[in-house]
């Protein structure tokens, strides 16, 4: 009885302190590669997500995907599918799963994993060509992933 109470209290404290941020290695996927649970518990900000999608130093999603809503970002790539209407095709959990590790949804896809830290061959220190050091982290933070999920959620075809 005492033990259960303590555990419950500990869970509450931890939950509050970390705002329930899930570490990259703790993300739970379903069998189709979707991630149901928010990585942070804080709703994503679509305006931040838009910046991340077009910023070459962050997500740079438009490097490979066309997004008509972001047509001010020049030279959009076509390695991946267009993201127009992507919210009609995928729900939030599926979009989150594709961002975290798209290979769980599409086996063998060239799309990088934006919230993963292990399993790489010769991981480097960003774009220096040198080996990764202690500063190695995921390509995007947990909240940045949530922000992009929120922006992608706005990409519906107009009725």
């Amino acid at each position: 009885m005492k033990l259960a109470t303590l555990t419950l209290a500990a869970t509450l404290v931890t939950g509050a302190a970390f705002a329930a941020e899930i570490a990259p290695s703790d993300v739970q996927f379903d069998e189709y590669g979707a991630v149901d649970q928010s990585l942070t518990g804080t709703p994503g900000n679509p305006e931040e997500g838009e910046k991340i999608m077009t910023n070459r130093g962050l997500g740079n999603c438009v490097a490979c995907h066309e997004v008509s809503a972001l047509d001010y970002a020049a030279f959009q790539g076509n390695v991946g599918p267009s993201l127009d209407g992507v919210a009609d095709r995928w729900n939030e959990a599926e979009l989150r799963g594709i961002l975290v590790n798209a290979k769980k949804t599409y086996d063998g896809t060239v799309m990088p994993s934006y919230y993963r830290v292990d399993g790489f061959v010769r991981p480097g220190n960003a774009y220096t060509g040198k080996a990764a050091d202690d500063s190695f982290g995921p390509l995007l933070t947990a909240q940045q992933v949530e922000d992009v999920v929120a922006f992608l959620g706005t990409l519906e075809y107009e009725e």
Partner: peptide, 16 residues
């Protein structure tokens, strides 16, 4: 498929 972006030569120059 090397690095954090997990790209091989083939990812870009054969597949794309």
């Amino acid at each position: 498929r090397y690095g954090q972006l997990e790209l091989s030569c083939a990812s870009c120059h054969e597949e794309n």
